[in-house]
Design a protein around this nucleic acid. Structure first.
Lengths: 244, 244
DNA sequence: AATCAATTCCTCATATTTGCACCAAATTAA
DNA sequence: TTAATTTGGTGCAAATATGAGGAATTGATT
């Protein structure tokens, strides 16, 4: 996973507690005794998630939150001691942020961190190129909106099932290479699922039918997997390098 | 300030240039590679100002301008590559608020954006797509007052239960994206893990019934979750939901 | 205790998606 | 060429997702 988390809390105990729990889950953590210190570090070198206590020496957590929000949409989890703070937070339009009221369960916080990061990844995806930071990715005349989970073909709505959506998004994000069946099964169906190898072919088949009138085509790499190509460059390169 | 600006330009460089300049001034920006993509997004979730390039793949900026003007008086700034009066006049007659000829100064564009928005605010009071300073957020003909926790529909009082209120508020403040069930459970019910429950569906069900006579609709993203859209433009695009 | 509103749970009906079997077609190897 | 393997298409059944109605539960108030 390898995500970097900044934690600001003036209480050493809480900071270290959080660190140990998060590091046990393979997160990298840096703690700060004040929000200002965190902010300073963040502006030099951003991280993947921020945990902010509300009450701290110097500027309070709300101030730091606002400052970070001026330049970043990094997920932020607030820690509050008082219920009144919690009320206040709920009144805010916090967007994708979360809050915890002390005392809280470190286990729950960790799982919250995980789910927040997962959600973030869902939205942002890890696309090589072409991704416009507004959540749109496209290939030929197909545009996928990661935010609304909608796809369009030449501007027309283009209904996709969940699996088809995941497959097409993955293909588009990896347009520059061929993808093996096993990789598709891993990434889209997950490691655990016990399904036939041919299920990927099934979804490819259905997706092919749907995009048959588009400028995109899923070419077969015989004995290996698939690759997304534009219809104009019909004969995509066959056997690329790595196989597995 | 917190205004939302949509930009349509097929040139990634220009789009990103504008975005960075505008975001530096605290505007929120979403870029689109085509006017059609912008139009689609706008109809689902309006913004406070639109910047349109004239020459784009698909429908050109003037067409998009006309389409937007059919339903909205949002300020629109046109970008044109040609320094011809025809463009200027045509643009003005169609109801654009201003135009810039490429190459233009980003600084000037930003100041124009500011002045146009200021004028707009003086004219229409507060018609921001986002939260206004007095704690009001709105969508279609629904207005929610976060301070008093009251809602109105077309000005009429609109009773909501606590869960319905939380759900609707969350949907409205995340109008630009689809929201998964697990996120709703997480945010509104506070469930950490994926419990097998359909409480979210239940509340969605009841909320749908209540807003059935409003301009808003909760569309289902099959296999994923929900998203708030306006009822008026589920028009041309029929199956505009049920995609994932 | 009785009542009421809000929420959750349950069941059923329906629609959609997905996995798989089976066979045909394509590709490779011999 | 033939045989073995891989891939693609059709159709169907199982699994899953959704929505509606209403019953059960909770919690507050009388």
């Amino acid at each position: 996973m390898d995500k970097l988390i900044y934690i600001a809390d003036d209480d050493d105990n809480i900071r270290n507690l959080l660190k140990s729990f998060l590091e046990r889950e393979e997160f990298r953590c840096i703690g700060f005794p004040t929000g200002d210190a965190l902010l300073e570090q963040y502006s030099n070198s951003p991280c993947d998630l921020v945990i902010l206590d509300v009450m701290m020496p110097g500027h309070d957590g709300f101030y730091i939150l606002k400052e970070i929000r001026k330049s970043s949409n990094v997920p932020i989890i607030m820690l509050t001691a008082k219920d009144s703070d919690a009320d206040y937070i709920q009144g805010l339009d916090l967007g994708s942020d979360d809050y915890f009221t002390k005392p809280f369960s470190p286990v729950k916080l960790v799982s919250k961190v995980k789910s927040v990061l997962k959600r973030q990844e869902e939205l942002t995806g890890k696309t090589s190129a072409k991704e416009t930071d507004d959540g749109l990715i496209s290939f030929a005349d197909i545009v996928i909106n990661r935010k609304t989970k909608e796809a369009t073909l030449s501007g027309e709505p283009f209904p996709l099932t969940p699996n088809e959506y995941a497959l097409l998004t993955y293909l588009i994000s990896n347009r520059d290479r061929a993808i093996s069946r096993t990789e598709l099964l891993d990434k889209i169906w997950g490691y655990e699922t016990q399904v036939e190898t041919r299920v990927a072919d099934d979804t490819v088949k259905r997706l092919r039918k749907k995009i048959s009138h588009s400028g995109a085509r899923i070419s077969t790499i015989w004995g290996y997997g698939f690759r997304l190509v534009t219809r104009s460059e019909e004969d995509g390169a066959e056997g690329e390098d790595s196989e597995d």
